[in-house]
Simulated assay, not measured.
Amino acid sequence: MSSQTILVTGAAGFLGSHLCDHLLNEGHSVIGVDNLCTGSLANLAHLAEEPRFRFTELDICQPFDVGPVDYVFNFASPASPEDYHRIGIETLLVGSVGTVNTLDIAKKYSAGYLHASTSECYGDPEVHPQVETYWGNVNPVGPRSVYDEAKRFSEAVVTAYNRYHGVNTHLVRIFNTYGPRLQANDGRVISNLMMQALQNLPLTIYGDGSQTRSFCFCTDLIEGIVLLSRSDEHTPVNIGNPIEWTILECAQEILAVTGSSSEIIFKPLPQDDPTRRRPDITKAQNLLGWEPKIKLREGLERSLAHFKACIDAQ
């Protein structure tokens, strides 16, 4: 495809920065914006001399305009429990006001649009594996609601801009993703256990370890998202790895990869923490010809250097 000018919000975040890399590697020009409340300029440091990349620090909850763009990828949002519990109001605002502001840019410039939604829209699911037609089981006033309901609202407003304004919108529901640049202390499974294992600290498992997650390596995820952005599909599409791991099995994989001698300890499960999480990716397979390639062991090995560097920087 021909070179485009693409806006990426949340560009300094874990996934946003990998998306910028992918788009630049395809030959596009990228405008990255981020307010750096959870993102880090270190994730973009390797692009400092890249002439086709421009970064602007700004808050998308305030009206803004970066000039004409051909496409908008909206990845701006805290994504980890540590972050959205700390800045809950900001999380609600970026999912609502911030999403509307980015949609207005897409509408103004007749640009394509993709919004990064989440498997958290399914809540603690009563349907397993989760299919896109499942409406979810979400507590609207629980401790996770600032994130869950922000994302559910954003899906509604993205769909409305397609329905009422004809914006070429796309919705990806992202399942657990990991890899280099994942925040080291963000409270999520992979980062917690990797950091603990590399320091030979006890591995903390919440609950009895039988709850499940499905872990997708970041490059696999980004490839699926970019394919979705170029499709004609406007309803939500799951992008994630359908292989289900218990948290205890994940911890054992991390011990094997790190060679750690850490013991495993158990703590109470947080309120509303989903007990099972696994995407049904039939829609992505049929629509995009996509499925993940990188197995958990390989992905953890690819992530080791990143987490070791995080420890060295402490």
Rank of each mutant, 00 (worst) to 15 (best):
D104G: 11
H115G: 11
C61W: 06
A111T: 03
E90I: 09
S110H: 15
Q62D: 10
L103V: 07
V94A: 09
K107C: 13
T91A: 02
V72P: 05
N74H: 13
L93D: 08
F53P: 08
E82F: 14
I60V: 10
R54T: 15
F73I: 02
V97N: 05
L92A: 13
T56M: 15
P68H: 05
E90M: 11
V94K: 06
L58M: 05
V66S: 06
I60L: 08
F53L: 09
G88D: 00
K107T: 13
A79S: 15
S119F: 11
D83V: 10
V66A: 09
G123Q: 03
D124G: 02
T56G: 14
P129R: 02
F64G: 00
L103F: 08
K107P: 07
F64M: 02
Q62S: 07
T118C: 01
G98I: 06
I89R: 09
D65M: 06
P68N: 01
P51A: 00
G98P: 10
Y71G: 04
E82W: 12
V100K: 14
F75Q: 15
Y109W: 09
F75C: 14
E57Y: 07
T99C: 07
P51T: 03
A76I: 01
T91Y: 04
D124R: 02
Q62I: 04
E90Y: 14
K107M: 14
D83G: 12
V72K: 06
V94T: 12
Q62M: 07
Y84R: 02
F55A: 02
C121P: 04
Y113W: 10
P125L: 05
F73G: 01
E126D: 14
L92G: 10
E90F: 14
P51W: 00
A116T: 12
V127H: 12
E57Q: 15
L114R: 04
E90A: 13
R86D: 10
N101T: 07
P78W: 07
E57R: 15
S110I: 11
G88C: 00
Q62C: 07
V66T: 12
S77H: 00
D70N: 14
T118P: 03
V127P: 10
F64Y: 07
H85N: 15
G98C: 06
G95C: 00
A111E: 05
D65P: 08
D59I: 04
G112E: 02
S117T: 04
G67S: 00
D104H: 15
T56P: 11
T102C: 11
V69P: 04
I87K: 11
S96C: 10
H115A: 10
D83H: 14
Y84K: 01
D104C: 13
S110P: 06
P78V: 11
V127Q: 15
K108S: 01
V72W: 05
C61S: 10
I89C: 02
E90N: 12
E126H: 13
C61Y: 03
L103W: 07
Y113M: 09
R86A: 12
K107E: 15
L92W: 08
